[in-house]
Amino acid sequence: MKILVVGAGATGGYFGALLARAGRDVTFLVRPRRAAVLRERGLRLTGSGEDEVLTPRLVTADRLTQPYDLVLLSVKSTALEQAVEDLAPAVGPGTAIVPLLNGLRHLDVLNGRFGKEAVLGGVAKVITTLNDEGDIVRLAPLAVLALGEQDGGASARTEEIRTVLAGAGIDASVSPDILASMWHKWVFITTLSTVTCLMRGEVGDVVAVPGGSGIGPAVLAEGAAVAAAAGYPVPESERDLTTALVTRAGSTFASSMYRDVVSGFPTEVEHVFGDLTARARALAVPTPLLDLATAHLRVHQHRVGARR
């Protein structure tokens, strides 16, 4: 199976590195600047007991000329439109695209460009980041990937992809309802990001102040209400897990969006928050805390844009 990983950041870079380490036929589609870093330093994995340097096969958009069997799309939503154009030559009649973005808006973009039959749903849960040198730092053991047909159910191609991923040491599964899985992660991400971005602190910092332990559950209730109204209720077990994570005393847990905010980087506010709150309005679900977080992140985005 010829695999193209679009993006070699914290998520795509990590899963792509596992595929490369296992000897899979994997190529990374990267921007010229990232390609220069990877050619100089290699693809480096550190943290959680990992310390490895790989020499990845790289390609830039101007040199992409052939179709691939599998495309793992892992870019920031702000780079989605350009990534779609860049990867187009890699999509042939039998190509399967597995996007690993948060939210759901990207499915509309990909379906419109390549056709729904080429696009699977995907959910990645991995706690990684890039350090100042561009190395991938694994911050916690969690690293799983789920995929599935947009219409639900398993298929020969999803099982084939799962087998290839699992054979490379990736904890991969086929979800019987991938859209539900994507909704549930969306609720989790917006809950954690609201707590940490709005309060400007890690979970433990928020929980340590009077009233702080109630913020996470209140935001979770809003997001879960939107998901339920859309037809994808969050299971009680997942709600309990999220509640525990956002109310844990002393926790250093924080969202990647929080790290972007404190570093002065752009965020995925429209793709993750703007789209969710717009759906909430359409479904007549009140979301005051999510609305506040959206406004807060939009102000941050405006300030970042004004400096560039």
Rank of each mutant, 00 (worst) to 15 (best):
K2C: 10
V6D: 11
V6S: 12
G7P: 02
G9A: 03
G12W: 02
L19E: 08
D25M: 05
F28W: 07
V30P: 11
V30W: 03
R33D: 10
R33E: 12
A36M: 13
R57N: 13
V59Y: 12
T60A: 07
R63C: 04
D69S: 07
L73Q: 01
S74W: 00
A79L: 02
L80E: 04
L87M: 15
V91D: 07
T95A: 08
I97Q: 04
P99E: 04
N111L: 15
G115I: 04
G121K: 10
G121Y: 04
T128F: 03
E133F: 13
G134R: 13
A140D: 09
P141N: 02
L142P: 07
Q150K: 06
D151L: 11
E159S: 06
R162F: 01
L165K: 01
M182C: 08
V187S: 11
R200D: 06
R200T: 01
V203M: 02
D205V: 05
P210D: 03
S213M: 05
P217E: 08
P217K: 10
V219C: 02
L220E: 14
A221D: 14
E222K: 05
A225L: 03
E236W: 10
E236R: 06
D240F: 04
L241S: 09
L241G: 04
T243Q: 15
T247Y: 12
G250D: 06
F253K: 07
S255P: 03
V261L: 12
G264W: 06
T267H: 05
V272C: 02
A278R: 15
A280D: 10
R281H: 08
V285Q: 13
P288W: 00
D291L: 09
A293S: 11
H300T: 02
H302V: 04
R308P: 00
R308I: 00
